[in-house]
Design a protein around this nucleic acid. Structure first.
Length: 896
RNA sequence: GCUCGGGUGGUGGAAUUGGUAGACACGUUGGACUUAAAAUCCAAUGAGCAGUAAUGUUCGUGCGGGUUCAAGUCCCGCCCCGAGUACCA
């Protein structure tokens, strides 16, 4: 009987969706398990084979845990606010809502074809007003909270102690300065091309993360989230998480904790410069100070004769983009202010400089330069001929030394270990009241507003300078329509075009709405909570449901979110935790990063400035240009089907082609992308081999965390395996199994597999599971085992991986229940014990021989067996055996 | 530059964490079935040497050393590839 995967898969997908097989509800009698995928942005190009990798893995875990007796929550939704839909709207005038809805439909359709066991009743979209109502609500909670340093947690703003003697205006200012969401004039990352502000996390190497457009610094009035208040908790709580070390590390680096000291250098009675340093032990080597150009003190400290050059320098560096600043790292620039400060310990008078190698956003925006022991300071001092003094021994003459050593050139402290001296300096400074121990973080506050249309409106109004938050009853603040989605160019959002929405009259007073929107990350910061109670109209989620389901037990997604989404959502979750809305400090207990599946691009070569294409083996003779070509046009991996190519595009139709015998292409592994014509769609694979084959093959490709190129050729192996599996249960005429007692050998094979699969799923090692199934089916086929007792368990065992085929087979067993409700088999160790082995013996790595032993063999037997072999006998030469080393019930060595 | 991963057949990858390296699969070769092809099935497949053969034997996990009865796995020193990060004082 033939394995007709198409009708089987259609049948069971319909069955599952009709019967809502995977609908989940709270059951206090069952342990819960929350399996979450990073929900996708519904892009216009649909899924490629790389997307489902994580979804298949999480589906296997979900189905496995259900069979293990857990109440499994496995939802899916869409992160539907975002830039591509907006950019598409700018180009075509089509409303992002329409394109987004269309894309979601397509995504859902594709996902369902893979047989994923989602509870679709919980589907959410971040662009749905029923959803973003609560995103806005959480924003207001942040607005109405402050961080109480004394207890290290957020509290309602009403609990804030306001200093007395403040007038009303000052009181408001004071409160505003403490809010977790606050409005500030900040230097932002402005991307002209995208027409919007970006967060620090969205800027990579001076270019925008999306699109790679240049980014410049520009002061703008923006909403900012006080994530820095949580720096220490975000860092410390990483310990609680079962996450890949690499992700934890990137978060650690991003938060960037450094311990050191804050030191005050006095200039005169009224002024001083504070610096932060991690090397207070080098205080005697601090031979000058450097301020960032943006530091307010910079201009104040310029003496009259230096005023011009200082002003000039500050102006110039403000015009530089981040990229330009980074370009000439080796060639440092700077100017002298003309002022001097006093080193608080050595009492030396040292010059104060301004240079853009000092960053305004980190520490105090000023450093004490120790050219003897800091490479940047060293370069600067060499260039401008400033004094260089070694104060820690160990370095070479005329070089900068950053290691540890004994203190030198530091008066009475010479000879101390520099690490010990750190402490001493801190104490000295504290006595002098000119400094103290201090901790600094690299993390900056999160710039939260975007000058875009397609995002959540911010629920704040302004009356002149007064901010008025919307009340809960006014939510959601619906995103209105606009005439044009284009950026306005002047730094305000497209929303500001809709005057009737922006300007409102309330009780005779004029108000203006905030027209910026929230960043893409806002919606994804808390979506895992909404899945618990997606239709709740009274709160973002019922507290009982949160208590039951949270935290997420397994979270699967790409590593590209290491610091963005994963840091922001931890931050919001902690705020909600402090305010009592959620029950735990961390949202995601275990995190698994699936690797990327790469595409295998193909290239053809055109002779430059001609319309002639050359086969890859002939390109050396010509000056050629490389062009991406669709991988669907290939035969046998690297041969091009010229007929197909000519028919695919008019520019190929009339071109000339040079080749011997075959026209060959070159191949390269790249990221899968529509523009590179290397996309393999899961739909095609499902059409040809079925979803079960695709699921197993994607798992079989290699470890889930690893990036690997897609290779369609290998899929036949897995497909053949499924056919073989099918034929275990069927003969030519139809379903055929036996109800007689199973063969002892087949039980062994089965239980070996059960043991391995149980272990491997828990370890997320799905590729080895698939191998185990293959071995099992091969062995059962070769002994022609058809026993119900064995085949039943095998069917359940494989159903998380290949659910359709297993449901179909299961339905033929005549059991009333769906296979989803069956208990996962556990192995019986006794069956696995063998009574007789053929042992290989290795002796000093030199000698190997095979012998037969009984499990409970005596030494004498071994000696007897050994003595029959001349070679072994010479090694033994009368020695008495003390011990036999068994490993995995095999004899590995004999000790005398 | 710094930090973290990783180098195993022609290819993707196994190896119970120190115990028969190369499981499983692709590919290749040979065979069976077919008028033929496809499909399917069977066999061989790390390299070398000896042998008609069963088999024996040497070398093999990026390179060089070390620990151990035993190293892909542990230690030391290099080389190469990938990812992240980048003047964070």
């Amino acid at each position: 009987m033939i394995y007709d995967f198409k009708s089987i898969e259609r049948k069971w997908q319909n069955y599952w969706s009709k019967n809502k097989t995977f609908k989940t509800a709270i059951d206090e009698n069952m342990p819960k398990y929350y399996v979450l995928d990073m929900f996708p942005y519904p892009s216009g190009s649909g899924l490629h084979v790389g997307h489902p990798l994580g979804y298949i893995a999480s589906d296997i875990i979900s189905r496995f845990k259900r069979k293990k007796g857990f109440n499994v929550l496995h939802p899916m939704g869409f992160d539907s606010f975002g830039l591509p839909a907006e950019q598409y709207a700018i180009k075509t005038g089509k409303h992002p809502k329409l394109t987004t809805d269309k894309n979601i439909k397509r995504f859902k359709n594709q996902l369902n074809k893979l047989g994923l066991s989602y509870d679709w009743d919980r589907e959410i979209k971040t662009s749905d007003s029923n959803y973003y109502k609560w995103t806005q609500w959480i924003f207001l909670k942040l607005y109405n909270s402050f961080f109480d340093e004394s207890v290290n947690k957020a509290k309602n703003i009403s609990e804030l102690k306001i200093p007395e003697k403040l007038n009303d205006q000052e009181k408001i200012q004071y409160i505003d300065s403490k809010r977790l969401a606050y409005l500030d004039n900040v230097d932002v990352n402005w991307c002209e091309e995208l027409g919007t502000v970006l967060s620090n996390e969205e800027v990579i190497g001076g270019l925008s993360e999306r699109g790679g457009h240049p980014v410049i610094r520009k002061p703008m009035r923006q909403w900012v989230m006080r994530i820095t208040a949580y720096a220490s908790r975000l860092l410390d709580d990483l310990e609680l998480l079962d996450w890949p070390e690499s992700i934890k590390l990137s978060q650690k680096n991003w938060i960037g904790k450094s311990e050191g000291a804050k030191i005050r250098f006095t200039i005169n009675k009224n002024s001083y410069v504070d610096v932060f340093t991690t090397r207070p032990d080098t205080i005697y080597g601090a031979t000058y100070l450097v301020l960032a150009p943006e530091n307010e003190l910079s201009i104040k400290l310029a003496t009259t004769e230096n005023r011009n050059i200082v002003e000039n320098y500050i102006l110039k560096s403000s015009q530089k983009s981040d990229l330009e600043r980074q370009e000439n790292i080796k060639d440092k620039t700077g100017v002298f202010t003309g002022s001097y400060a006093i080193n608080p310990i050595s009492k030396e008078k040292i010059p104060i400089w301004i240079a853009d190698y000092v960053l305004s956003g980190y520490g105090t925006g000023a450093v004490m330069a120790v050219p003897g022991h800091d490479e940047r300071d060293f370069e600067f001092a060499e260039k401008f001929n400033l004094k260089i003094l070694s104060v820690v021994s160990g370095g070479k003459e005329g070089e900068c030394y950053t290691g540890d050593g004994k203190i030198i050139n530091s008066e009475k402290y010479n000879g101390l270990d520099n690490q010990k001296f750190k402490k001493v300096v801190c104490e000295l400074l504290e006595d002098l009241e000119l400094g103290k121990k201090s901790i600094n973080y690299k993390l900056r506050d999160w710039i939260f507003t975007r000058q875009r249309y397609w995002g959540e409106p911010i629920p704040i109004m302004y009356h002149g300078n007064i901010k008025v938050p919307l009340s809960d009853t006014d939510l959601p603040l619906i995103l209105p329509d606009v005439e044009s989605f284009k950026p306005t160019g002047d730094g305000s959002s497209p929303l500001s075009r809709n005057k009737s929405w922006k300007n409102i009259l309330l009780n005779g007073k004029k108000f203006e709405r905030e027209t910026n929107t929230m960043p893409q990350w806002a919606g994804s910061c808390w979506y895992f909570l909404r899945f618990l109670d997606p239709t709740n109209g009274n709160s973002f989620a019922n507290k009982n449901k949160i208590d039951y389901w949270m935290p997420v037990d397994v979270y699967i997604g790409g590593a590209e979110h290491a610091v963005l989404h994963l840091l922001y959502s931890r931050f919001w979750h902690k705020v909600l935790y402090d305010l009592g809305f959620v029950s735990g400090p961390e949202p995601f207990k275990k995190l698994v990063n699936q690797g990327m599946i790469l595409g295998n691009s193909a290239f053809i070569y055109r002779i430059k400035n001609t319309n002639t294409y050359v086969s890859y083996d002939l390109i050396k003779k010509h000056d050629v240009q490389k062009i991406n070509v669709d991988i669907d046009l290939l035969i046998n991996n690297n041969e091009l089907n010229l007929e197909k190519l000519k028919n695919s595009d008019i520019r190929f139709k009339n071109a000339e082609y040079k080749f011997n015998e075959k026209f060959t292409v070159s191949r390269e592994i790249e990221k899968m992308s529509k523009s590179k014509f290397n996309v393999v769609s899961p739909d095609k694979i499902c059409e040809k081999y079925g979803a079960d084959t695709l699921r197993m093959y994607e798992m079989f490709l290699g470890p889930i965390e690893q990036s690997k190129p897609w290779n369609t050729a290998g899929i036949s192996g897995v497909h053949n395996f499924l056919k073989k599996f099918w034929s275990l249960y069927h003969d030519q005429s139809g379903f055929c199994i036996s109800y007689s007692k199973p063969d002892q050998n087949s039980l062994k094979i089965l239980h070996k597999t059960i043991k391995k699969v149980n272990l491997d799923i828990e370890k997320f090692s799905f590729n080895t599971c698939v191998s185990a199934f293959m071995i099992c089916v091969n062995e059962l086929s070769s002994i022609n085992e058809k026993s119900f007792e064995v085949l039943k368990d095998l069917c359940i065992l494989m159903s998380p991986f290949a659910p359709h085929i297993c449901e179909e087979i299961w339905s033929k067993f005549g059991e009333s229940n769906s296979i989803s409700n069956q208990n996962f088999p556990t192995h019986n160790e006794l069956i696995l014990v063998e009574d007789e082995f053929e042992y290989p013996i290795s002796f000093n790595g030199k000698l190997r021989l095979k012998m037969i032993f009984k499990l409970d063999c005596e030494y004498q037997d071994i000696e007897k067996e050994l003595s029959q072999n001349e070679k072994v006998n010479s090694y033994l030469s009368g020695k008495k055996i003390k011990k036999i080393i068994f490993v995995k019930s095999k004899i590995i060595n004999i000790v005398f």
